[in-house]
Design a protein around this nucleic acid. Structure first.
Lengths: 245, 245
DNA sequence: GCTCTACTGTTTATGGCATACGCGGTATTG
DNA sequence: CAATACCGCGTATGCCATAAACAGTAGAGC
């Protein structure tokens, strides 16, 4: 029913009666500091004390701007997303627009992949989230789909983008931790799989291993493109009843 | 390269030299207790002390069975997934099989939706994860797709299922916390959205609101079916080059 | 001008957390 | 029987979020 305080602040409602001493901080500064900490040391390091230290201020000072850490995390997710680019671009059909929308979102999230470990706590209500929804709907304008179908399609794409970026970041973390090159780590994974699975009980997996699927692995961009193409093909079937070219 | 200790234990390698006193616990008991705690109080409550208390044992006793909490969380995700059902069923074509695979996974995850907040730390190497992969590949046997394409398709579906269950669980949590019925909460969300967005800057969203998309919302099963149909349609295009019926 | 008041950032305290370390006890192996 | 390897536990450390009480500051109303 009522919206959390930080949401109202983020939307620019809630004016401050400038009574007491001047503020030394601002929500923007705090969120920026949090992003710095997160980028440098990952989400587990994003603690109130670390953020405060980054700002040269005591831990509790932050609570004058934010009601709880969960609050701050919401602001972080919104800041990571940032405002959407103007979409769709002039000559775009719906498919090109949707692809651009997804690619832009992916680019935003990849700037702070650690933030994807922040648990979602409800339907998006922050300004940037809503703005992205608006932009996505605009891209689907030409499809003639029902409003609820459009929404469902965007949620599908959004979920895919988030999952994809998060998965890649997790892999990258694992690789970084293993102190070997990505190729070595991947082939190490293949070797472990081969050692743990016998060919009788896991014939399909051994087929994968023999095809050296894990050794080459087309790279994150190919994987993203594959998923997007499948999803957009699926939506295209819904829009036109025809298979895409 | 080398596999973590808990992974080897989970695969049944690593024998115990029965030298010291008899063990009072087992990995299974610990994981079960953790699942009980998680189901009752959510992931944040899944602490070593709570689990130990659940078992009537001291906190540190758990570390005789598990090298770290992260270790235990890995075991939990594998236990939540559980072994896959025998798939595909006799008369299934690839699409029916894939749908069954996804539905079964969804059912498993929905038994412990809180576990989806556990951050992924790398490529799945635990027994049940690998078994599900094997089962999924078996479902796609009839597609004639490349091995790497099959893998990518399964990752896509897997990501969708996880995202969908997690999103629904988050919504449910938010609803539960708001102490009103789901319908009231959803219409509350719509009202908040209407209050925060003006019709000039957010025309598409207002179209959504006027269509009362948030008020009825077909329910989680419809949303899941929608996403699965889109993804499977997209894969079908790849398999046959034809639009599905 | 002065006082009241709301607001500032800080210090201190509480309770929870993961986990390193060292203990006395126990069951198997030689 | 003795050595050994492992058990479960108690204690201690250093994080964490955040509640509460504090002294200082600047605008509002007189």
């Amino acid at each position: 029913m009522e919206v959390p305080e930080s949401v109202e602040i983020a939307w620019g409602l809630r004016e401050r009666p400038g009574k007491g001493p001047k503020r030394t901080l601002s929500l923007e500064h705090i969120v920026e500091a949090a992003l710095r900490v997160g980028s440098a040391e990952g989400l587990p390091a994003v603690s109130m004390s670390k953020i405060a230290a980054e700002l040269g201020v005591s831990t509790m000072a932050l609570y004058r701007y934010v009601t709880s850490k969960g609050d701050l995390l919401m602001l972080i997710t919104d800041a990571v997303l940032g405002p959407p680019p103007p979409l769709p671009e002039p000559g775009d059909d719906w498919r090109r627009g949707a692809h651009r929308w997804a690619a832009a979102m992916r680019a935003s999230l990849q700037r702070h992949p650690w933030s994807l470990r922040i648990p979602i706590t409800g339907p998006g209500i922050m300004p940037n989230h809503v703005a992205w929804l608006e932009a996505g709907l605009r891209c689907l304008r030409g499809t003639g789909l029902d409003p609820d179908t459009k929404l469902a399609a965007l949620l599908l794409v959004n979920g895919f983008v988030r999952t994809e970026v998060a998965l890649l970041a997790d892999l990258q973390d694992a690789f970084d931790a293993s102190q070997v090159t990505d190729e070595e780590a991947l082939s190490g994974y293949a070797r472990s799989l081969a050692r743990l699975t016998d060919a009788e009980r896991f014939p399909e997996i051994h087929e994968l291993l023999e095809a050296r699927v894990f050794d080459m692995s087309g790279g994150p961009d190919d994987e993203f493109a594959f998923g997007m193409d499948r999803i957009l093909d699926g939506i295209a079937v819904l829009v036109t009843g025809e298979p895409p070219a």
